[in-house]
Design a protein around this nucleic acid. Structure first.
Lengths: 239, 239
DNA sequence: TTAGTTCTAGTCATTTTGACTTTAACTATC
DNA sequence: GATAGTTAAAGTCAAAATGACTAGAACTAA
């Protein structure tokens, strides 16, 4: 979305040129809310340093290079802008409306990623890269608000079926932490006892002998996720 | 997939040129199987008339024109190749592997469509456009076998959740016909009584006062689908 | 030692699911 | 015109899943 096929063509020539192709990524991570301290969804945005939409916040992205696959391009600009390696990365949608960008036509293939909080804490932040709460975004450049909305919708949807919540957690976690992820993403309270029964029913989750120490109350058992990310035609598996 | 950005550039220049962008479509319709007479999934393919993959069968597709949205491009080449207007059209995936096409890099944004059998029966067929059973395809051009496999996987998945089966049927249908669609797509038998109970539980289905006459046995009641297609960020709704 | 909190297991009524039975309504054939 | 054959449609029943809730276990903080 940031860079387009460099050319000195004038406007008339641009109309005939093929649309330029860009890759962008919506990156989700959990961070404790400033107010409640409970985990909430955050995402990193970059400040645009040129027109169009100069000085507005936008999704990280860039052009597709000729020697990288779509997914590689997404990984790369994720790494370049935030320094992060995603735990989960999947194609979201190809956006190709006629007027997404003034002056020239841009088709954006957008990916979405989940990163673990330990990673997310290390993420680069600077004048031009900052994390925002996913549910409290200002007006973004291009059609990026709509893209984020769609990414959130997909995340909630996947969460309801697939086993995706674990990619927002570290290697070991308690069942209460899993529940907090669900509560943060679905934005509603869940009954702890029933939730635990359900989660324990899934085979992709494994008890460890360890317990989380240092809490204020009875130490909860730690679990580990043994499933695979899997999805999409590139690496297929779930709904 | 068929046409690429026209240029007289040589190979070295092509490596630096941006990938060309194409739109293709996987079109599903039900047709009675030749053997059993039961409905089965079919799709139209076009014969390639030039290199690469000359004379092989491929998904209908073409370049994206500068004044049409992605979905419009898909509708258009669907209409141009088969004369069909789809009942349902949704983006499937953007395929952008490095070696999908020899010589130059092509990124294909693929749509999938469902058409009603009445429409499908009228579809143009010619020397270079022919319908094939979806589960018995020969080797296709490019990575089109993989694309069809993925489209089938998505169709089965959507069928299991959303209310998509109706788009393969006409305006009025019996519950047994709906079951046949499920059986054809999911490729397994379903209990008629339980299936009926489940379908009648969904609100998007409406009884008409009519009955299907002319059958050999008790005339079944006709129903109508009242839901909306809806999906994707362009027209949002279901999983 | 006690109060407070969370973790964990379990109970119970309700709903959903899968396998199956029964009756209704029509056609074709005797 | 009765009857056998077939599908439509409704209903039964046990098993499984779900939602609301209770209770004991295990820890910390006071």
């Amino acid at each position: 979305m940031n860079t387009v096929y460099a050319t000195s063509a004038n406007v008339a020539e641009r109309r005939l040129a093929p649309p330029s192709l860009a890759i962008s990524t919506v990156i989700f991570a959990l961070r404790p809310s400033e107010s409640s301290g409970r985990p909430t969804l955050w995402l990193p945005l970059v400040r645009r340093i040129r027109e169009p939409f100069k000085d507005m916040w936008a999704l990280p992205g860039g052009p597709l290079q000729h020697d990288e696959s779509l997914q590689d391009a997404a990984s790369r600009n994720l790494r370049e802008t935030t320094g992060l390696a995603p735990q989960y990365l999947e194609q979201l949608y190809a956006f190709g409306g006629l007027h997404r960008s003034p002056a020239q036509r841009v088709v954006s293939i957008v990916y979405w990623a989940l990163v673990q909080p330990t990673e997310a804490a290390l993420a680069d932040e600077s004048e031009n890269v900052r994390w925002f709460r996913a549910d409290r975004l200002a007006e973004l450049a291009f059609d990026h608000n709509a893209i984020v909305d769609y990414a959130l919708w997909r995340l909630r949807n996947k969460m309801a079926y697939g086993s995706i919540a674990y990619h927002l957690l570290g290697e070991f976690f308690t069942l209460a932490q899993v529940r907090e992820v669900y509560e943060a993403v679905l934005d509603r309270q869940l009954d702890p006892a029933n939730f635990r029964r359900q989660i324990k029913g899934t085979p992709e989750i494994e008890e460890t002998g360890e317990y989380l120490q240092g809490g204020k109350h009875r130490p909860p058992r730690l679990y580990r996720f043994t499933g695979t990310p899997g999805l999409g035609p590139d690496n297929r598996s779930t709904p």
